[in-house]
């Protein structure tokens, strides 16, 4: 299946609720949320679809910074938010359905979280 209509945009953690509210109003469907392991932060990717074209928003979330949940607009996002929380240790506030770290049953907490940033900061 050909996939030509996709855009990647960057956003800050503060902008996330506003983006979700706007896209919900414009009739976008939430496709997914996923985390990407990075040093010093977790990149969270939000994807929304309308008429088979996808807009992706990349949000760099520094460790320890909470992000506002988008569940008030897209209730179905609870699956992904709890998944990203359990695997990457990103905290989502004001969630409509928060499992508080009990969504996945794993032997180790937050296994996919990246390394702390100190070393790379000094190098750069």
């Amino acid at each position: 299946m050909t996939e030509n209509t996709q855009t990647f945009e960057t956003a800050t953690p503060e902008e996330v609720p506003a983006i979700a509210e706007r896209l919900k109003g414009e009739g976008y469907r939430m496709v997914q949320i996923c985390g990407v392991t990075k040093t010093g932060c977790t990149e969270v990717l939000y994807s929304f679809d309308r008429d088979f074209s996808v807009r992706n928003f990349k949000v760099d979330v520094p460790f320890g910074t909470p992000v506002k949940s988008i569940t008030p607009w897209y209730w179905a996002a609870f699956v992904y938010e709890n998944e990203v929380h359990d695997l990457f240790d990103v905290e989502f506030t004001d969630s409509r359905l928060d499992y508080k770290g009990n969504f996945f049953r794993m032997s180790r907490k937050t296994p996919w979280k990246g390394k702390e940033a100190e070393e790379t900061k000094e190098g750069a």
């Binding site: 299946m1 996939e3 996709q6 496709v31 997914q32 996923c34 990407v36 994807s47 992706n56």
Partner: peptide, 30 residues
Amino acid sequence: GDFMFRVEQPRGEAFYYVQGNGTKNLSRAR
């Protein structure tokens, strides 16, 4: 770079996302 791809599976739309980092390995396959 990044690329996303979707396939209509029997159960519905499946979403694939890959992020390359200039090596033989990908930094993320979702």
